[in-house]
Amino acid sequence: MWKKIKKLFFILILANILFIVWGKFFNPPITLTQIGGLLEYGKLKRDYISYGEMGTHVKKAVIASEDQAFFSHNGFDYKAIEKAMKHNEQGKKLRGGSTISQQTAKNVFLWQDRSWIRKGLEAVYTFIIELVWSKDIILERYLNSIEMGRGVFGVEAASEYYFNKNAKNLTKSEAAWIAAILPNPKKYDPKNPSAYLKRKHSWIMRQMNNVNLK
């Protein structure tokens, strides 16, 4: 029995290693979050594109919105985590401190919840992809797999869904609208923005001026 358990454990580790290495060259065939969206909404709008096909505006907008230290941290933004912990301790609405690298690890390899098991695995995968993948690859995987609406995944599908154009052709304002719906794309709609979303859009537009793509 113990030998079978060790064998199974070894197979799982090997499969994960192969999947991580494979992911350096290819986008995931499908993710657990995408399966969940398909089951919940009966549709899966997704169109993987290369890093170069994404254009500049949407990259800057998402980095400005989600993780302005993306190119300088090692996968974990400890200042953002500390701020999030202090904010949450005050009993306010929960705020996350996850980086784009952490969100990529979650979106590509794991599932969506707040359990300690998932967070622990997320940390492991984040550490590994920061070592094995480049920042451009991490950002490409993130922008292709991130949920951008009900059954809509990735910036290309979001660009087509909200603005009827390719991601590379988005204006600065349109890219900021797409970034503004993160991290709650099921709640917010750039076609019918709330006052909060309008304020966030304006903030992202300003912050995009501070983002330099490496």
Rank of each mutant, 00 (worst) to 15 (best):
K186R: 09
N212S: 12
V211R: 14
G151S: 03
F163I: 01
N212W: 12
W133V: 02
A61C: 10
I117P: 00
A195F: 08
G37R: 03
P193F: 15
M208D: 05
K135N: 11
N27Y: 07
I181R: 07
K4V: 05
N169Q: 10
G42K: 03
W203T: 03
Y51M: 08
P185L: 05
Q102S: 09
D47Q: 13
Y51H: 11
N16I: 00
K6A: 13
I35N: 05
K60G: 04
V132T: 11
G149I: 03
N144C: 09
W116Y: 14
P28E: 12
F9Y: 10
E40N: 11
I5D: 06
K7R: 15
Y161I: 00
K6Q: 09
E82F: 09
S159I: 04
G91P: 02
G42A: 05
E156W: 02
L139E: 00
N184F: 09
I129N: 01
W177N: 02
K165S: 03
K60R: 14
D67I: 04
N212A: 07
L143G: 01
P183A: 12
I13S: 15
N184M: 07
Y162S: 01
I17N: 07
A15W: 11
R118V: 00
V62F: 06
R114A: 06
N166K: 15
L170D: 03
P183Q: 13
R46T: 01
P29S: 12
A167E: 01
N88G: 06
Q103W: 01
V155G: 00
K83Y: 10
Y125V: 04
V155H: 01
A69V: 05
S159N: 04
E53H: 12
A105C: 08
K119L: 03
S159R: 02
L213T: 03
A123F: 15
N74I: 05
L44W: 02
E174V: 05
F19Q: 07
D47I: 02
K106N: 09
N88W: 15
R141P: 02
Y142I: 05
N210F: 14
K165P: 00
Y51F: 15
M85A: 12
S101E: 11
N166Q: 12
F19Y: 14
G120N: 05
E89N: 12
A175Q: 08
K93M: 10
V124K: 00
K187A: 07
G75H: 13
W2R: 07
N74D: 13
F71V: 06
W111P: 06
L131P: 01
D77C: 11
A80K: 10
E160M: 04
A61S: 06
G97N: 11
G154W: 00
